[in-house]
Amino acid sequence: MTTARAASGLLGIDVGGTKVALRAEPAGPPHPPGAPRTAGPAERSADALLHWPAARGARSDWAALEAEVTGLRERWGADFRAIGVAIPAAVDGEGRVTAWPGRPGWEGFALGGALRRLFPGATVRWADDGDLAALAEARYAGCDHVVYLGVGTGVGGGVVHGGAPLPGPGRGSCEAGHLVVDRRGPRCDCGRRGCLQATASGPATLRRAARLRGAPADFAALRAGLAESAGWAEEAVAETCAALAAGFVSLHELFRPELAVLGGGFAEGLPGFTDRVRAATAELARPGFPAPPLRPAALGGLSSLHGALALARRHLEGDTR
């Protein structure tokens, strides 16, 4: 715990399976989407990036995060008024992690209490990373009805309806990555077969690519294979795109969004990936029900981080939707 100082600004924390991104911003109105940025005081921000320790335990992870926050707080020069946290884990109403297959050592970790001790006196809120990415992309697009899928270590997703995330505070998160798209599909890390995540996540795509290639295939190799139109790369990615298309169409059938957004670091890093998913989605549209416009995430791989900042700002302003 640090000595109390004047609180100034907001902090967003995007907790991932392999790394954590942090950003501090002023507590005033957010930068208008599309407006030119200036170098003035209102544009002040501070960023940090933490790669998780190899130990993969909650205690060592949290110690590393505390150290990163301390350094960022010193660079910012003040404490924070509100903190928003995007996290892929399942967290119960008491703030305890109930499941996180990507980092199982966190199960049972009292996240809420740890955050309150790290930020005494501040407003602290956390939510699913996919929900927050959807919120950030909806705000950026100026659209109140959006579905989002993000492809990275897993597949996250979110729905914004009427300007607010669904299903809403206290009702859990939109687990779009666990939509069942193939009952006989590969085993998901949740234990079920056929989840969207089990077919379309970055690691799932790379495993399929390696099997088809008959040799190891990392992200760089997959990217190069696509550039060369290699059969193994094309087939591996086509299966991913087909699964994502099924996910988008299913969400569209339920929520009738005005916009569909594809994000995540894996998707962002493959040229033409959104076009491939858009084409696969169009093939699944049924007569009289065209698929919604599909765009790449305007915020790229930072959608969840911006969503965490939006969460902090909304609660600071008294909006608890």
Rank of each mutant, 00 (worst) to 15 (best):
P271E: 10
G264L: 03
A210V: 04
H252P: 03
A242F: 00
T240F: 01
S250A: 15
D218Y: 06
F219R: 12
A260Q: 13
R211S: 15
F255G: 06
A227R: 12
R211L: 06
V249S: 06
G272I: 04
R276A: 15
L262W: 12
V249K: 03
A282I: 02
P271I: 00
G263T: 06
A215P: 11
V249H: 13
A230S: 09
E253F: 00
F255E: 04
A236P: 08
A230M: 03
A282Y: 00
E235L: 10
E253P: 00
F266M: 12
P271R: 07
P271K: 07
F273K: 11
L254C: 13
T240S: 13
R276P: 03
V261K: 13
E239K: 09
T240Y: 00
G263M: 09
A243I: 02
G265M: 03
A233N: 07
F219G: 10
P271F: 00
R223M: 02
D275F: 00
C241K: 03
L251Y: 02
E253D: 11
P216L: 12
G231H: 03
S250D: 07
A267K: 10
L212D: 08
L244N: 05
L254H: 05
A220I: 02
L262G: 07
P271W: 00
V249N: 07
L270Y: 01
S229F: 01
S229I: 00
C241G: 07
R256A: 14
A282S: 07
A260Y: 02
T281V: 06
G231K: 05
A217I: 08
A224M: 04
R278A: 13
A279C: 14
A245F: 02
F273A: 02
A217T: 11
E228L: 12
F273V: 01
A236Y: 08
A236E: 14
L212A: 04
P257F: 03
V261M: 11
V249T: 14
A230T: 02
H252C: 05
A210L: 04
E258G: 15
V261S: 07
A227E: 12
V277K: 08
A279L: 13
E253H: 09
A224H: 08
E253S: 10
E258N: 14
A279Q: 08
G263R: 12
A243T: 10
G265K: 11
A220G: 12
H252V: 01
L244A: 09
A245D: 07
A282D: 11
L254N: 06
A230F: 01
A280W: 01
A210F: 02
A210N: 06
E253Q: 14
G231E: 15
W232M: 03
W232Y: 01
F248L: 15
T274W: 05
G247Y: 01
G263Q: 09
A220L: 14
L212G: 09
A260N: 10
L244I: 06
V277A: 04
A215E: 13
R276T: 04
T240E: 13
A238I: 01
V237H: 08
